[in-house]
Design a protein around this nucleic acid. Structure first.
Lengths: 225, 225
DNA sequence: CCGATTTTGTTCCCGCGTTCACAAGCTCTT
DNA sequence: AAGAGCTTGTGAACGCGGGAACAAAATCGG
């Protein structure tokens, strides 16, 4: 389930506050979801709660981490060391969750050899060697859109079967390879869409933009309600 | 709809390749969705296609951009100028879509006054002034989790009604304010989850991990298919 | 030891989103 | 000008996920 990482974070926050036990209601509020949904999600992992008491924070945290595979360490390579690639390379949230960045790769010869945090940037020609050498299982693509598909193909050929794609391009991969796409500008666009719909108003009437060319105007009748 | 930005990007790609007209089938493939879904989404905006022909790429692109509000320019403030904040401040995908970053804000006095690209970093005490002065409508939070809620409260009080939250924390806001959350480590965790389920195999048998403690083993019978 | 209380695990139902399938409509050819 | 061939727009069925509601179980107090 895609919500397990959220629960994990909520549990970590409770653990930091030295809370040993938590009810589904409390956890659900911390995670921002419905308590019934949370219980259903957790019951899928097994019966890790105690009726009348709640969930043991540490125990549940370990179980979720294990289910997610965070008790292993995953080797990650980042391809494309622009602003975003650098930010990800330094992002503390990765290493604390079992993700180890073993190599940074860039196609720009001017960048090769530079150091970012603990890592030296390698030339893209070494991609296959690095993947094999470090037994990399996850590739992160932060290249321009034009290179994304080529990089993905090389990753797949080298044996990587999970890809996180930040490039603004749809990449196609064979069956058995997972791709997740994060597009930072899409999130802003969605916000803008909602924002646009909110800011229409006119006197007493409520104006809702049903489409860009259709406005629904609700005017309260005088004297009623 | 949350898919409009994806369609917009696919249309832009077609436009760059000087393709004037596209069918729903073609567009859907470029966007990575079902063609019926795409047609239904587009029909919600109005009848912008021509039966027997397809959609006019430029016309549809403009219509979607207008629907999303990308024909306006949106003023954005970024709070928290760490690695991620810097990456976002320099991200080209924002400015090309009508988003204008009007201010960078950080609580660290050592950072105040530094320049990132075209912008100077301001102290967090100026947040309200900057929001009012530039008529900011969207706030981007890239602070540590511990400051996120406080920053969000101040943004809301200053009149910002759309927030993009990169901090690993659930923030609560009054009704009428939109929050979208992006958590970079969650994406990796989901990949790890799937990766873990894939890499279990044992001889001829197919081993599927139903739960962390339940394995389904399918062994082909000897001699039979 | 038993009942009251609390909280989990689960069942059932409702609604939304997706997808199939088809009718409506446009273009091009003959 | 009429029919053949596409392609859009949409009606209808299907499936899945979410939420309320309830039963099962564990603790606590008397």
């Amino acid at each position: 389930m895609a919500r397990l990482p959220i629960y994990l974070r909520a549990l970590s926050a409770l653990s930091d506050r030295d809370i040993a036990t938590s009810s589904s209601e409390e956890l659900a509020q911390a995670a921002g979801v419905n308590s019934a949904k949370l219980r259903k999600d957790l019951s899928y992992l097994g019966s890790y709660g105690t009726r009348g008491v709640g969930y043991d924070v540490e125990y549940l945290r370990y179980q979720i981490a294990r289910e997610l595979g965070l008790t292993q360490d995953w080797r990650v390579v980042i391809i494309g060391v622009g602003n975003l690639g650098q930010a990800l390379a330094n992002y503390a949230g990765f290493s604390t969750r079992g993700f180890r960045i073993v190599a940074l790769v860039d196609a720009d010869p001017a960048r090769v050899g530079q150091r970012i945090g603990d890592h030296t940037i390698h030339g893209v020609e070494k991609l296959e060697t690095l993947v094999a050498e470090h037994n990399v299982s996850i590739g992160v693509i932060t290249t321009p859109a034009s290179s994304a598909q080529r990089v993905a193909d090389r990753l797949v050929a080298a044996g990587v079967s999970s890809i996180l794609n930040f490039a603004p391009a749809v990449i196609s991969v064979p069956d058995g390879v997972d791709v997740r796409k994060v597009d930072l500008s899409i999130e802003l666009q969605i916000l803008a869409y909602h924002e646009q719909r909110k800011t229409l108003s006119c006197g007493d009437s409520t104006v809702t933009r049903l489409r860009s060319d259709v406005l629904q105007v609700v005017t309260p009748a005088v004297g009623s309600q």
